[in-house]
Design a protein around this nucleic acid. Structure first.
Length: 206
DNA sequence: ACATTAAGTGATT
DNA sequence: AATCACTTAATGT
């Protein structure tokens, strides 16, 4: 085992992990867990990476985050202790090795080893940060809709009108960059929804 | 004609 | 989607 990975664990804890953990290897694309599955052990990634995704009813998947060397699955931690099924899907992004630790050890180690508590805490913190990023990009991918709404709002929701504003102005209102607005406007123009002029946008409300 | 500002583009992360 | 670097087009003086 790689001692460097567990350098801030108490020797005693490392010993326990080695004793109770089982090694598991996944090839690219192999699934570790899917929504609905119950988990009876939590993984600690030794090498490679796992892609964690959320799945909606129709099977559309949205990326949540990657688990890499030294990471553990925050979902597993909560699912395990609450005996709830998984609500995410985990697939190997590359050949991945991990250590599977039985659930029942968690609580014991939690109270026994401060470093384990820290490890778990940090796992949550990192996951949370990654999730925020995912949320951000999701929220921002609605930019085309936000722009279209803004234009209609500025046009006063009336028949064919002009909006007097530069791309810069619009981008400032939407908290995005001028280039993005330019490109989205061009897209809208291609769809025949608007016509662009200098300092002015013409809404084509048929 | 020249300078300034708005708009368009491509590449990169 | 954001940033950067750069080009091109429109406008004002």
């Amino acid at each position: 085992m790689q001692p460097n990975l567990f350098h801030d664990f108490e020797p005693k804890l490392v010993e326990e992990i080695e004793k109770s953990g089982t090694l598991k290897k996944l090839e690219v694309g192999e699934e570790l867990m899917r929504p609905g599955m119950f988990i009876r052990s939590i993984p600690i990634i030794l090498s490679g990476s796992l892609k964690i995704m959320r799945q909606d009813e129709k099977g559309n998947e949205t990326f949540l985050y990657f688990l890499q060397k030294g990471d553990t699955c925050a979902m597993s931690l909560t699912c395990c202790s609450a005996s709830k099924p998984s609500n995410v899907r985990a697939v190997a992004e590359e050949p991945t090795e991990m250590l599977l630790v039985p659930v029942d050890k968690l609580d014991v180690w939690m109270s026994l080893y401060p470093s384990w508590k820290t490890f778990v805490f940090q796992a949550y913190q990192r996951r949370f940060e990654d999730m925020l990023e995912a949320v951000d990009s999701l929220a921002f991918r609605k930019m085309d809709e936000r722009l279209w709404r803004l234009l209609r709002k500025k046009a006063g929701l009336q028949e064919k009108r002009y909006v007097y504003a530069t791309h810069q102005d619009l981008s400032a209102e939407l908290n995005t960059s001028r280039e993005v607005v330019t490109r989205l406007l061009k897209k809208l123009e291609g769809l025949g929804k608007i016509k662009t002029h200098r300092n002015r946008i013409e809404l084509m409300l048929k």
